[in-house]
């Protein structure tokens, strides 16, 4: 429970003492739970009816009700909107079942009631128990204001003297400010994982079918003294080998891979300062990358299909395809 500032307590005690006609110290002691309950001077029944125009317990309870409903509202909002992704996940952890359920499921009216039953709060106000024991920081503050007030207007209070007064209004608010908006999410299990499992099965199926139909090549044993014609690199390096046939090795073999590989790729996030991820905002970046894709793809295709003996240009429909990786599948020559 939050410590009620001494000044507030004192002001409240003074008001109560004035109304009851007892020493301030006695009231203060009672409020702090150190002294005995104050003996209210006896009075005749009906002198002050509970439903008079004065603030009555019913009215105050109603007030508290509204206030606590407000607080409950606030609290549910806090529970529903994830403060951050990680925290939202933590909210699901088994602190309490209800809490977890609420954190995951969208907000609804029943849950607002479930979170802090307003009736319970009202009862506690009447019982003059410290409200803070219920839960929540919002209610904590509310309790600080409400609890030092007597629930029953003391009998014998002169007409027109208000025994209850508003010290201050504390708006129930979460300690942390909520910044992240709730996003549309689904459970990883089963939604994402079934999808992944499907993809996994599909690729396995594809690979097995491929492996049954297409055989890995195994040419003659390695012989340093007999160079095959043409000798080609693996397909993913054939674009580079193709470049080698146009340019000096220093350019095609070193400069281009270094620039595209290290500068061109690793530096992309640091060069591209455009914060947008919308395609319409980053036409230039997309154009550049697409040009690279088309260029690399074309070079590789030329290397695979259009290069024959002596790495000279050929047409695959005229001289066949010189690509030994698929040699055992289709006899091109």
């Amino acid at each position: 429970m939050t410590e009620i500032p001494e000044s507030l307590l004192r002001r409240s005690a003074e008001a109560k003492a004035k109304a009851l006609g007892v020493p301030v110290e006695q009231v203060l002691a009672e409020m702090k739970g150190e002294g005995p309950p104050i003996e209210v001077p006896a009075s005749d029944e009906g002198a002050v009816s509970p439903l008079s125009d004065e603030p009555s317990p019913g009215a105050s309870a109603g007030q508290a009700d509204a206030a606590s409903a407000d607080a409950a509202d606030e609290q549910v909002e806090e529970a529903v909107s994830p403060r951050s992704e990680e925290q939202a996940e933590e909210a699901v952890s088994p602190r309490s079942e209800e809490q977890a359920e609420e954190a995951v499921s969208p907000r609804s009216e029943e849950q607002a009631e479930e979170a802090v039953p307003p009736a319970a709060v009202a009862t506690i106000v009447e019982d003059e128990q410290p409200l803070a024991e219920v839960d929540g920081s919002g209610n904590d503050k509310l309790a600080a204001v409400v609890s030092p007030r007597p629930s029953v207007p003391p009998a014998g209070t002169p007409e027109g003297v208000r025994t209850a007064r508003l010290l201050t209004v504390v708006k129930a608010r979460a300690i942390q400010t909520v910044k992240a908006e709730p996003t549309d999410k689904v459970n990883t299990w089963p939604h994402l994982m079934l999808m992944e499992f499907g993809a996994l099965l599909a690729i396995t199926g594809l690979l097995v079918i491929m492996s049954v139909i297409i055989f890995s090549p195994l040419l003659d044993p390695a012989n340093v003294n007999s160079t095959p014609n043409p000798s080609k690199a693996p397909w993913y390096f054939l674009g580079l080998q193709e470049l080698l046939s146009y340019f000096d090795p220093q350019i095609a073999g070193v400069t281009v891979p270094t620039i595209t590989g290290i500068i061109g790729f690793m530096m992309i996030p640091f060069v591209d300062k455009n914060p947008s991820t919308r395609p319409s905002d980053r036409k230039f970046a997309i154009l550049l990358y697409s040009m690279f894709m088309v260029g690399a793809g074309t070079l590789t295709l030329i290397g695979v299909l259009f290069r024959g003996r002596g790495f000279n240009f050929t047409y695959p429909w005229k001289d066949g395809i010189f690509f030994d990786d698929l040699k055992d599948w289709v006899d091109f020559e």
Binding site: S216, A222, N223, K232, P234, L240, G253, V254, D324
Partner: peptide
């Protein structure tokens, strides 16, 4: 696999 394909592809690659 140490066949002709392997040997000469790697020769081309390591030459780079």
């Amino acid at each position: 696999p140490w066949d002709q394909l392997a040997l000469w592809a790697v020769t081309v690659g390591t030459n780079m």
